[in-house]
């Protein structure tokens, strides 16, 4: 061993090179790493850490923001007790959870088989197809929401047109699809439909993203597992169910965590679709929107900060639950 090493090593005496230790102690190396990392810390402190701590501080105060910083008034935990006992906040949390489930579950239930289908059925054109599914995710939420409000328009929307034409489809004297589809235009802005509409838009927007996540995880599953299963006579759905799904569990944990966080912070889609008000009877008002409205419409930044911390606690708790459910057991 030693003879080989000495043969490979270049002659030491000729070039006077500093050792690694010496080099690390050179003056530049002492501060250079800090210099290079400093932009992150500077930006994080100004835009991340400071607002974080300030909002915590603010959540114990009453503050009329237009009156300036001096107008802050200590109120203890009153903002928290008010928010927790407030039925508007409770409604908004209920709406958020409803939307999180209604938009979240289908995302994964559809994304996993879809990813499997793309993984197994497309070879050359796969990237193009994935790109198409991914498109909604990289499109501006505002643009998407505006397009969907037009599609869901009561009198002139395409969706109502499709639904009612299916509902009113007649053979002879009977309408065979009337039990399933509406025969009259649906007013999607009515409280009973608002959430469904928002959930659909959110689902549509994120299903491609999850598909890409699952697809990338599928590509890491060793091929020999499938080959062995094929040799043993496992059918395609059996391979999916007994190999793909279990092997996807780490990715499921990751993707579901992202969905939980994203859906509980849902803001842009319902905000644009309901015109910033939360819709009739606040049926489409999410907790994040409630926070925004409390701050910028009602002018109560203290309570709004308290709401954001309650929301943070809720997300942390649900992520923990998700970890228990899908995370790796040690």
């Amino acid at each position: 061993m030693s003879s080989v090493e000495s043969a490979v090593r270049p002659p030491v005496a000729k070039i006077k090179k500093r050792t690694l230790k010496q080099r690390l102690h050179a003056s530049g190396y002492k501060w250079a790493p800090y210099l290079f990392i400093s932009p992150f810390f500077a930006i994080f402190t100004v835009f991340g850490l400071f607002p974080l701590l300030f909002s915590l501080f603010l959540s114990f105060h009453y503050w009329e923001p237009a009156a300036g910083l001096s107008a802050m008034e200590w109120v203890g935990i009153e903002n928290y007790t008010f928010a927790l006992t407030d039925d508007w906040f409770q409604t908004s949390v209920y709406n958020t959870l409803w939307l999180a489930l209604a938009a979240g579950i289908p995302q994964h239930v559809i994304a996993i088989p879809l990813a499997y289908f793309l993984h197994t059925s497309f070879k050359r054109s796969r990237n193009t197809v994935i790109g198409m599914y991914f498109m909604p995710f990289i499109t501006s939420t505002v643009a998407i929401s505006l397009v969907f409000t037009t599609l869901f328009s009561r009198d002139f929307g395409m969706i109502n047109m499709l639904f009612t034409s299916a509902g009113n489809w007649t053979i002879g004297d009977i309408q065979p699809l009337a039990w399933l589809f509406p025969t009259e235009n649906i007013d999607w802005n009515r409280p009973e439909y608002t959430k469904t509409m928002i959930a659909f838009v959110v689902f549509w927007r994120f299903v491609g993203w999850n598909t890409v996540l699952y697809l990338s995880a599928m590509q890491t599953i060793p091929k020999d597992l499938y080959e062995a299963a094929t040799v043993d006579g496992a059918k395609r759905w059996q391979q999916f169910w007994y190999i793909t799904v279990p092997m996807l569990k780490p990715m499921m944990f990751f993707a579901v965590t992202l969905t939980i966080i994203g859906n509980l912070q849902l803001f842009e889609e319902p905000f644009i679709i309901t015109g910033g008000t939360g819709g009739l009877e606040q049926a489409g008002k999410t907790a994040a929107m409630h926070m925004y409205i409390t701050a910028f419409v009602e002018g109560d930044f203290g309570t709004a900060s308290a709401i954001s911390w309650i929301l943070f606690a809720l997300i942390a708790f649900l992520t923990w639950g998700n970890n228990k459910l899908l995370g790796e057991k040690k």
Partner: peptide, 8 residues
Amino acid sequence: MTTALATG
């Protein structure tokens, strides 16, 4: 304007 008034 609200935030500008708030922070001065």
